[in-house]
Simulated scan of single mutants.
Amino acid sequence: MYGISSSVSFVKGYRKSFLINFKNLDIFHINNSEAGELIKLIKQRFFKEEEISSDLISFLKEYRMIYKINSKITQQFPPKKIEYNSKHLIEYLVLEHKDDLTVQKALKICSFFKIPHLVIVTNNDLTKKVNSFLINNSYPESVSIVSDNVKIYAQENKFRILYIKKDTKPFVHIDSMELNSSLFLESQFSHNYFNKKIFIDENGNIKNSPNSDISFGNIYSYHITKVIKKAIFNPNFKKYWKVKKDICAICKDCEFRYMCVDDRIPYQKNKHEWFHKTACNYDPYTATWKELNN
């Protein structure tokens, strides 16, 4: 008897699906018309060799997606329980840099609230200022400096400081899809773009989305820790955190839904479903990308 490896996941879309083996980082984009036998196996979890086609079992063996198991002990292997937990109240603070004061305050906010990741969008070299703070503080654990200035993003990464070229493409595009086990897990429980993030715009406004007009305070406030605390405990600030793709119209039918980071604001259609006012660059009903059709 054989069992399906716990590292194997299957994400069904309307027209196509993904078969993923996280252990080897193998991913296969397959037509649903060819996936019937595979879907049955994954639901069944354990099977005899004679129950499936020779081609499929050869494929699963080649990519180490199955293992041999004694049929008498299969009950000792219950289905894997999927959970997403984070010890941090906020995971990311994203800052649009305006001046040195906002940078200093953002660093202090990360330290006070133990926010592990700070992202600064800037065309200024902030390396010395950031590094001098990190030397004496455990948080943020990492600072990503995002820029379209080649003199900045071309620098070599330093300890806890990363330099990233600003992406000018639409937020969701074919090259933005990422096979990442942490992202894949988070996406099954939360909206992976808005969840546990604070956005601070160039005017210092504290937001739950960079595209929102609603401000929950300002970074230039004197009692900034009180302002941040009030914001993150406001239910409206967390409004989008649990709007996972599985409850969004169209997205719920997309095979990319657990690896797609989408910055579009979702709107509530009814108690059980949300929607977007703008179309995505990928259409799960035709399995095509707009950019490849232009």
Score class of each variant (00 low, 15 high):
S221M: 12
I219Q: 02
F194S: 04
K244Q: 02
I224L: 09
D253M: 05
F233Y: 15
Y220A: 04
F256S: 01
E186W: 10
F233Q: 07
I206G: 03
S212W: 14
N236W: 13
D253Y: 12
I232R: 06
F216A: 07
N234G: 01
R257E: 00
S187R: 06
K245T: 04
A231G: 03
D253I: 11
K230V: 08
K245E: 10
Y193L: 07
Y193S: 03
I224K: 04
F194Q: 03
K229Y: 15
K229S: 12
K242T: 14
E255A: 07
I214V: 11
A249N: 06
I265T: 10
P266W: 12
I198C: 08
I250V: 15
V227P: 00
N211W: 15
G217D: 03
H276E: 09
F237R: 01
I228W: 11
Y240A: 04
N192L: 07
Y220N: 12
S212F: 14
H272D: 10
S190F: 15
T278R: 11
D201V: 10
N236I: 10
F184A: 00
K196A: 10
F216C: 07
F256I: 02
K244S: 08
D253V: 06
S187G: 07
I232V: 15
N270G: 00
E186S: 08
K277L: 12
K238Y: 01
S209E: 04
C251D: 04
P210V: 10
K245R: 13
G204S: 07
I200T: 00
D201T: 03
E202T: 10
T278G: 02
N192I: 06
K229I: 03
T225R: 08
P210E: 07
M259H: 03
I198L: 08
K271V: 11
K239D: 04
Y258E: 05
G204P: 07
K269F: 15
S212M: 09
E202S: 14
I219C: 05
F256W: 14
K245Q: 08
N218P: 02
S209P: 05
I232C: 07
R264Q: 12
S221D: 15
Y267M: 08
